Amino acid sequence: MLAHLDEHAIAYEETHHAVVTSMLESARLGLSVEGVRCKNLLMQDKKKRRLLLVVAQADRQVDAASLGRGLGCGRLSLCSADLLLDRLGVVPRALSPLALINDKEGSVELVIDESLCDVSRLLFHPLVNTSTIALARDGWGRFLSSIGCEPTYVVVGGI
């Protein structure tokens, strides 16, 4: 992952830390990098035809019912750890949109909460939950372009 960022001249700042298993633990880390922490959820529709990687600010509630309706895919639920590993090559609690680099089939849709549109720096796990990287907004956009990902921006819920 980091080699890909380096290869595409995408600047990032990295910090290593203890294993993080929840957003609450993440908030308590006292990271040496600045940016907005994000929650990342791999979700699927009821018929298991669509996979969505939903990205929102850490303190946002994701309204799965209205999000599913708004995206025209009905009821959404969280994917299993096995599916997460199979499609994106990461284990639970290490998920971030950076894992889309492993989605060779392009089967996962990236859905980003509109509240992140004006954020200057975003914090993500680089495929492991023992490290966090900060990406500037332009670097984030360049990463998505480098993997051919076109996100959908929506309101995912409220605080």
Rank of each mutant, 00 (worst) to 15 (best):
A65D: 10
R121Y: 09
W140Y: 15
K39N: 12
L144H: 12
S80C: 00
G68L: 03
I101D: 00
R60E: 12
V90R: 02
M43L: 15
I101R: 04
A94D: 02
N102C: 04
T132F: 04
T130K: 09
D6W: 01
R50D: 07
I147S: 08
L29T: 05
L78Q: 06
L110K: 06
D59N: 12
S66Q: 14
L85M: 10
N129T: 13
A136K: 11
G141N: 14
I133D: 11
D45P: 01
L88W: 03
A64K: 15
H8R: 15
L53C: 04
H8N: 14
S96G: 05
V155C: 07
I10N: 11
L110Q: 06
K104E: 13
E14M: 15
A56D: 13
A134T: 12
R93M: 09
H16G: 01
V36W: 05
V156N: 01
V91E: 09
G30L: 09
G74L: 09
S115Y: 01
L67E: 10
L67V: 13
H16D: 08
A64M: 15
V90L: 04
A58W: 05
R37H: 13
K47Q: 12
P92A: 10
K46D: 11
L71C: 08
V54N: 09
R142I: 05
S120T: 10
V90D: 02
S115M: 03
K104G: 00
C117W: 00
A11V: 08
C149D: 03
L127T: 15
A11K: 10
P126L: 07
V36F: 02
E13V: 06
D103A: 07
Q44G: 12
A9S: 13
A134Y: 10
C79L: 02
V156R: 06
D45K: 10
V128L: 07
V36Q: 15
E14F: 01
C149E: 03
E7L: 14
D45R: 08
G157V: 06
L144A: 13
Y12V: 13
A136C: 08
Y12G: 08
E14I: 15
V156W: 08
L76V: 09
S120C: 03
L67P: 02
E34D: 14
C79H: 07
T132K: 06
H16I: 04
S32R: 13
M23T: 13
V155F: 03
V91T: 13
L71H: 03
V36S: 12
G70W: 02
L2V: 03
G89W: 11
I101S: 01
G106V: 14
C38W: 00
G106I: 14
S120M: 07
L88S: 08
D63L: 05
S77L: 00
L116A: 07
R142H: 06
G158I: 12
D103Y: 09
R93Y: 14
L31D: 00
V62W: 13
M23A: 15
V155H: 06
S145E: 15
T15L: 07
L116T: 05
G141H: 14
A18S: 05
S77I: 03
V156K: 05
G158R: 14
L144R: 09
G106C: 08
D59F: 02
K39I: 07
V154K: 06
R50P: 00
V55A: 12
Y153H: 14
K39F: 10
A136H: 07
